[in-house]
């Protein structure tokens, strides 16, 4: 351990909360959104997809659709495309997203989160909706050493305070 830590903020994201209608499965939603052929929306706390479109599992039948370079109409397009299959709403401005990269990223997050973040319990592709420092977070592991942590926008400053305070003691 100990390859350092880089903290940055990911901005300009498009985010849509997607909630399946009664009886609609994850596969249909994945297909309708145009994920890669055969790729379902994850039914477990995982994410699939790429920068253009990713689906992040946040609960049974609920996801965050994420796009790194959304057009002005992106959220509305997603919502319309899901009509009849899922209820969806634009939450692009709801979160501040911090990216933690480096060999110490997992250790820092483990100081805050009381969920097992070590492989194999947690690995690239894993998602955890949990709490750090009394602040609700969505942790998304991107690769071996990087994570996105999303917090509600209003709590961004408090979370940033925890991040910098805890990181200083690594």
């Amino acid at each position: 351990m100990g390859d350092g830590l880089e903290i940055s903020e990911v901005t300009g994201l498009g985010l849509v909360a997607v909630m399946a209608r009664k009886g609609v499965g994850a596969e249909a939603i994945g297909q309708r959104l145009g994920l890669a052929p055969g790729l379902a929306a994850p039914a477990t706390p995982h994410w699939v997809g790429d920068g253009a479109l990713a689906l992040i599992g946040t609960g049974p039948g609920s996801w965050l659709a994420r796009s790194e370079a959304p057009t002005a109409e992106w959220a509305e397009t997603v919502i319309e495309r899901l009509a009849g299959l899922a209820s969806a709403t634009d939450v692009s401005a709801s979160y501040r997203v911090f990216r933690l990269s480096g060999g110490d990223a997992a250790r820092l997050l483990q100081r805050g989160a009381f969920v097992d973040l070590a492989t194999p319990a947690f690995a690239p592709g894993s998602v955890a909706v949990t709490v750090i420092a009394h602040i609700g977070v969505i942790i998304r592991q991107i690769d071996e050493t990087s994570f996105d942590v999303s917090v509600f926008r209003s709590l961004g400053e408090s979370f940033h305070h925890w991040l910098t305070t805890a990181a200083a003691t690594l």
């Binding site: 909360a17 909630m19 399946a20 209608r21 009664k22 609920s62 899922a86 209820s87 709403t89 634009d90 939450v91 692009s92 401005a93 709801s94 979160y95 509600f152 926008r153 209003s154």
Partner: peptide, 13 residues
């Protein structure tokens, strides 16, 4: 009931 709900408190100013 076929109804879904989510908070949008943080999205809107």
């Amino acid at each position: 009931l076929d109804v879904q709900a989510t908070s949008t408190t943080e999205h809107w100013a």
